[in-house]
Design a protein around this nucleic acid. Structure first.
Length: 369
RNA sequence: AAUAUUAGUGCAGGUA
């Protein structure tokens, strides 16, 4: 059984669903770990129904779920449209007392948070018998994601007060608060304490710092951190590039796009949307067209955000034709696409076109915001 | 001895 479960997990980590199921099926004896592993495999591969099915099967043959079973299911229920199922599972957990378990409780915090239910999230936190570091991290993150910076900060202070040492997960959340406050002072303080504690400057924490300083308008601090990060990943580069773009340094953003390509890091849609938005401010047409060409040449399929940036950029420089072309080719238009194009017409004195497009949008059932 | 829970980046419009 042990070997079988281990093997199962190996296939699971290799994303080999069929082989994992074969192993599971051929196992002479299955224990709770075998079931948990197999259920988790399905859930992680987005086969939610199969996962739930297996969960029911397990119950039918009289194997009781443990905290691992419940938490992996709850994690999957954090996705949209699964709130009810999540609540049912929560109910089951309460009956068996598993909701007081940290593993289950932590997952509940996150599940409710992702559904925007901060109060239930907080309740789940309160019900955990022995709160651990992850409980606090999840709770802080829950508040951050639901736009409650002060609450998040309060939890951060409280956790330190009760003697729990924050880790890099904690700091990522707290730095996100600082970024949203645009307060370099607070950010520097937090930065100082994470150094004190000895958190390493990896790509994750580094990118968060770059983002925080950039959003606080301290672009030179952001650059300074950026240089110090040894293993930069794509998000590190993107954070720096957005930083430049949002602080009115479109040229720098472009320069860093070139630099990252020289380092053989493939720009993604985030990169391009950021660089282009930087051009919209400085009305740099030629560079914008170059980047546009670069996108078309690359393997990347541009997403809506990139197209929207192109529309805005072309509209800003008065090239309505090019904006229209991008707009018409864009299949997955969202409200931003429509607003950008309508606004583009308006700013170029095409009031009639703007109105017509607005009506077309409504006719297609897109609601204005 | 095998399974598990928390973290980072982008696009339009808005009164100083």
């Amino acid at each position: 059984v042990f070997v079988g479960s281990a093997l199962l997990d190996v296939y699971a980590k290799c994303r080999n669903l069929q082989d994992a199921y074969l192993v599971f099926n051929k196992m002479p004896n299955r224990n709770i770990v075998s079931w948990n592993t197999m259920i988790a495999v399905y859930l992680e591969n987005n086969q939610i129904d199969e996962g739930l099915h297996l969960f029911l099967q397990m119950g039918e043959i009289g194997i009781h779920p443990d905290e691992y079973t419940i938490s992996s299911l709850l994690k999957a229920m954090a996705m949209r449209s699964f709130l009810n199922e999540g609540k049912q599972l929560h109910g089951m957990a309460v009956k068996t007392g598993l909701h007081m378990d940290a593993l289950v409780g932590n997952t509940l915090i996150t599940m409710y948070s992702k559904h925007g239910e901060v109060i239930d999230s907080h309740r789940a936190f309160g019900n955990i018998f022995k709160k651990d570091l992850i409980s606090w991290n999840a709770m802080i993150q829950s508040h951050v994601k639901n736009g409650r910076s002060e609450k998040a900060m309060a939890f951060f202070l409280e956790m330190k007060y009760v003697g729990i040492e924050p880790d890099k997960f904690t700091f990522v959340s707290v730095l996100a608060i600082c970024a949203s406050l645009s307060s370099p002072k607070t950010g520097r303080g937090v930065h100082g304490s994470l150094i004190k504690i000895g958190v390493l400057l990896d790509a994750f924490i580094g990118s968060t710092l770059v983002d925080m300083y950039a959003k606080s308008g301290a672009i030179s601090d952001a650059e300074c951190i950026f240089e110090k990060i040894e293993h930069k990943d794509i998000i590190t580069w993107n954070s720096m590039i957005v930083g430049f773009a949002q602080n009115g340094h479109g040229e720098q953003a472009l320069k860093y796009l070139c630099l990252m390509r020289e380092e053989n890091i493939e720009p993604d849609n985030f990169t391009f949307a950021s660089v282009l938005s930087g051009f919209a401010d400085i009305t740099a047409v030629q560079q914008g067209r170059q980047v546009h060409a670069l996108i078309l040449k690359s393997r990347l399929t541009m997403d809506t955000a990139v197209a929207n940036s192109l529309i805005t950029m072309y509209a800003r420089v008065g090239s309505i034709k090019e904006a229209e072309e991008v707009f018409s080719k864009l299949t997955a238009k969202n409200i931003v696409s429509w607003t950008a194009m309508i606004g583009g017409y308006a700013q170029n004195g095409c009031a009639r076109e703007a109105l017509e497009l607005f009506h077309l949008m409504e006719d297609l059932g897109v609601k204005p915001n």
